[in-house]
Design a protein around this nucleic acid. Structure first.
Length: 468
RNA sequence: GGCGGCGUAGCCAAGUGGCUAAGGCAGAGGACUGCAAAUCCUCGAUCACCGGUUCGAAUCCGGUCGCCGCCUCCA
């Protein structure tokens, strides 16, 4: 039984799809006023993880990741740079997509942008006004928070707390009836991007686009809505209020919030400039290392991103690389002839535990522990001379589990050919060893290593590969 | 100030009432090896602190200390 945590209820709940056999998921991608950073890598990986696992569980999954390409910040930025706001949006969306691919995440099914849904947004705002939850004021339209009795349920705060906390910060806007009300539609100022609406020229407020776009693709009530924890308030709280007020139905079954990524103890933030871009990370570490690191902690836990952590992940991955390389040597490459045989009992046990861990709110940290155990199982089998049939079956099983996590697809096991001069050194070393001239052999190995390669002696002869 | 979360071995990180507290990185010893590498075997935790509930607590309750997040644009 698959259980997934829900922020709204504050507990893990059994996953029961709204529509049998199907899963609708919506993840808040990014507001595209600036470059994607490490935090966005986590959304990319977490949304992909959910997609892959739910599909593994047999569901037909639809994943929507949105881009909010119109808001105060991007207009501001466009002004600063003197370019069209859509140009900035496109540039950052392109980067996001580039690194999504870098991380080995599958494409989502839809990537809606707020500006493409203004018509839907206007309809939704009209509906809110008709139902008495929103009011027009000077060209703006506000959601009247106190009309919605469930307001605060998601972020677990009440109106009084909110007002107490915000009283010093939120300037009283005389267009609003109440300080806690939020804009669903904003009148455009001179020169700002604007759309025609029943309330004059204007543009969508911040939260409304997600309500409109999620409903468009997934219906008024869908399964999973995700994003970072910092979006719980106000973004998701407001989004939920709008959607439920408009439809009178529950909006989503599982609110999934992943922990934030910190850099040396401090949260990354666009406003303080304290963040690492995806580009900086990608330049330094291979995709699998980043993905492995991101998955080695449970998705709801906040994590710290640092070079040391990534180096550790890289070391961990070597265990898999070494195993697959050895298996290639011992039983040949993956693929042909791997079907048929049943995995060993030890491997089957690890597989079952892996799935059990994943069924418990996608606990990748625990699941990966079993992956390492599976590696040990295979290594033990190799040591004890298990049959090629069993080794192949077990390798295939392990590969299947890695695929669920989208990990290590392109493991380098063959160890591409070393340059000719290195090959010559290796050959010379083999001769020296045959002649039991150990001093010469060691000397040659030193030369090979100086050239950036390592040589390992195996029962099947020396294996050369690039040193890490 | 209000709300939420966290504190598990040198580091990272699972486990939330009961078998010997997963796993990884780093480290030590052993096996294998001409030497290595890889691999296998072995080795490390009074679960922040104090008190309580319980036959039994890392796990539940109360308190203390420390860290983080949200309350304001942000994955």
């Amino acid at each position: 039984m698959l259980r997934i945590y829900d922020t709204l209820e504050g507990r893990k709940k059994e996953f029961v799809p709204v529509r049998e056999g199907k899963v609708g998921m919506y993840f808040c991608g990014m507001t595209v006023q600036s470059e994607p950073h490490v935090g966005h890598m986590r959304v990319a990986v977490v949304s992909d993880l959910f997609k892959r696992y739910l599909r593994y569980k047999g569901y037909d999954v639809t994943l929507v990741i949105n881009f909010t390409d119109i808001d105060d910040k991007i207009i501001e930025k466009a002004g600063e740079e003197g370019v069209d706001y859509l140009e900035i949006a496109q540039r950052n969306i392109d980067k996001f997509m580039e690194f999504l691919h870098f991380l080995g995440a599958e494409e989502a099914d839809h990537y809606p942008r707020a500006t493409e849904f203004v018509g839907e947004i206007i309809k939704l705002v009209e509906r809110l006004v008709e139902r008495g939850y929103a009011y027009e004021s000077g060209g703006d339209v506000y959601f009247e928070v106190k009309k919605w009795k469930n307001y605060g349920k998601l972020s677990k705060r009440n109106l009084e707390d909110l007002l107490a906390g915000a009283s010093q910060r939120v300037a009283l806007d005389d267009k609003k009836r109440n300080p806690e009300d939020f804009a669903v539609w904003k009148a455009a100022k001179e020169g700002e991007p604007a759309w025609e609406s029943p309330w004059g020229m204007g543009r969508p407020g911040w939260h409304i686009e997600c309500s409109a776009m999620s409903t468009k693709y997934l219906g008024e009530h869908f399964d999973i809505h995700g994003g970072g924890t910092e979006l719980i308030f106000p973004h998701h709280e407001n989004e939920m209020a709008q959607s439920e007020a408009a439809t009178g139905k529950p909006y989503v079954n599982h609110w999934v919030h992943h922990g934030l990524v910190n850099l040396v103890g401090e949260k990354m933030s666009k406003s303080t400039g304290h963040f690492k871009t995806m580009e900086e990370i990608a330049a330094k570490f291979p995709p699998d290392v980043v993905r492995f690191y991101l998955l080695s902690t449970h998705y709801r836990t906040q994590i710290e991103f640092s070079d040391e952590r990534l180096e550790e992940a890289a070391s961990s991955i070597e265990r898999f690389e070494n195993l697959f390389r050895t298996l290639d040597r011992v039983v040949g490459p993956e693929g042909q002839g791997d079907e048929g045989a049943e995995p060993s009992a030890a491997m089957e046990e690890e597989r079952a535990k892996f799935i059990e861990a994943m069924d418990d709110d996608l606990n990748t940290a625990q699941a990966m522990g079993h992956l390492f155990e599976a590696v040990r199982v295979l290594n033990q089998e190799i040591e004890s001379g298990a049959s090629a049939e069993v080794l192949r079956a077990d390798r295939r099983t392990l590969r299947g589990l890695l695929d669920i996590l989208g990990l290590l697809k392109d493991l380098e096991t063959a160890g591409e050919d070393a340059p000719e001069e290195v090959e010559k050194l290796v050959a010379a070393r083999t001769d020296a060893r045959a002649a039991r001239d150990w001093a010469r052999a060691d000397e040659l190995r030193a030369e090979i290593e100086a050239a950036g390669y390592t040589v390992e002696d195996t029962p099947d002869g020396p294996v050369v590969r690039k040193a890490r």
